[in-house]
Amino acid sequence: MSSPCRVRAERLLALLLAAAVLAGCEREKRHIGPSGPEAAPVIQTTPFVPGGAQPLPKDPRAEFYENNAFEVAQGARLFRWYNCSGCHSNGGGGMGPALIDDQWIYGSEIEQIYGTIQQGRPNGMPSFRDKATEEQIWQLAAYVRSLAGKNSQVASSRSDAMAGIPPRNQASPADAGKETPPKRLR
C-alpha cells in the first residue's frame, strides 16, 4: 500500500522525533546534592571602567543555571518563597522595578543580576548575602532572566503568573529564538 517514498518519509520523521526527544533530556537535567566547588563570584555592574570598554568577565557557573529548566523552576519557587513579589509583583513591578522588560538598572547579564540580589542595591533592594545560599541566588537570577525572555528555551511551559513571554507551548514558531517577544502577556 505504502510507497517506498512514504516509508522513507516516515522513517525520517521517526528519526527526527527521536532526536527531538533526546535533545530534551539535557534541558531539565537535575543537579541533586551539595553544591559543587564555589568559585569566587565575579560581579561587575557596568562595563564603564577606566582604560576603555572591556567585555564583562563571565562566571563559570552562570551557564549551568541559565540553561537548565529545573534550576529556573527552582528560582520561580524561591521568587515566591522569598517574597520578591512584595516589591516586584509577579515581574511587572510595583514598589520595585519591573523585571519582565529587558531594561535593567544594574545590568542584564546573569552575573550582574546575581550581584544585585547578593549585594542589594540602593533605594530598597535588600542584600540576600547570608539569607540565601549561593545556589539559590543563581537560581533566582536565572529565573529573573527568564521573565524577560532572556533564556526562553528553558522557560516553564506553564506560567503561574504574569510573564514577559508566552509559555513555550503557546508561542508561535516565529517567536522562537527572539530575545524580546513582540507580544506580552498581561
Partner: peptide
C-alpha cells in the same frame, strides 16, 4: 550540615 545527602532533592539547602 547536608540535607541533600540524607534526603536528595529536598528543598532544604545546605547552608554554609
Amino acid at each position: 550540615a547536608n540535607p541533600q545527602a540524607l534526603k536528595p532533592g529536598t528543598n532544604m539547602p545546605a547552608v554554609r
